[in-house]
Design a protein around this nucleic acid. Structure first.
Lengths: 147, 147
DNA sequence: CGAAACCCTGTAGTTAACTACAGGGCGTAA
DNA sequence: TTACGCCCTGTAGTTAACTACAGGGTTTCG
């Protein structure tokens, strides 16, 4: 039996996050000690690791919840899980296409700039004002995920 | 001279967003009519379009602010703008690499699954529990941008 | 002149996924 | 026994970029 802090250490998930997951329904309410402390088991360790790994694969907590629900559904076939994975792959590929298009536009702008002119004549800045031509999809702007 | 609503229509930026940009310092405080209404000019139209376009290219509002500041700096050379564009390209490429890795992992999982087994034997779910091997970078998990 | 449509301000809510904090209880080691 | 660290709860703050709303003034059209 593990305390919340121990579970946190075992899984690399912040202790407060564990409480948050419980609230969200991602973790079942654990048993409690006489003093009211949460008492976790190895099952909880596995479940938390599942959550972490699915997150790394680009699933949102909401989607992970669905995956977990699916898993707990007796009659379900693994085709549903497969479907969700395929949908996620499609999403990721669309995202990659967006980013590639943005990068290419940026590359073209950089190519037009020798970096030596005074900033007032910077072709990159000018392109930004003029627009026309290149159409990065405004709906998915977020090349910024690293910043 | 344009009202806030007119500027919004001209640029496709929500009227409230214009006020927000002013607060953030992305748009200079405009002149006011006798009644206190904001009065915008073509310069503001251009500036807002700059902001939109830079956003589409993956720049955050904070970065756009820097770009705009740079532009207003008399002695600056366009090399600085070029540098920022190059840095952004690098960011985007790193993001693409992350997403590609995630997609490949997902593809491998899907390939291992015929979708017919009961969900308890789903190899995708099992892989999620077991971890090991594939290492999608946890720091940039967000294949979810489309959801 | 009156109603609709717009503008003003300040503030609060939205999304996702946490993370922190206040105020109190418990458990253990010197 | 007391001090320190961990646990409890509920709630509020964080980030980014908006978006909405309340309660009021203004402008314009018919």
């Amino acid at each position: 039996m593990l305390t919340r802090g121990e579970l946190a250490q075992r899984t690399g998930v912040h202790a407060e996050t564990i409480r948050y997951y419980e609230q969200r329904g991602l973790l079942p309410p654990p048993r409690r000690t006489a003093a009211g402390y949460r008492a976790y088991s190895e099952t909880d360790v596995a479940r938390l690791r599942f959550i972490k790994r699915a997150q790394e694969l680009g699933f949102s907590l909401r989607e992970i919840e669905e995956l977990l629900t699916l898993e707990a559904t007796p009659g379900a076939s693994s085709g549903l899980v497969r479907q969700r994975a395929l949908a996620k792959i499609a999403e990721i590929e669309a995202r990659i296409r967006d980013l590639t298009r943005i990068r290419d536009t940026l590359r073209r702008l950089v190519a037009a700039c020798d970096g030596k002119a005074p900033v007032e004549h910077c072709p990159i800045l000018h392109a930004l004002y003029d627009d026309h031509g290149t159409h990065a999809d405004a709906k998915h702007r977020d090349g910024n995920a690293h910043a």
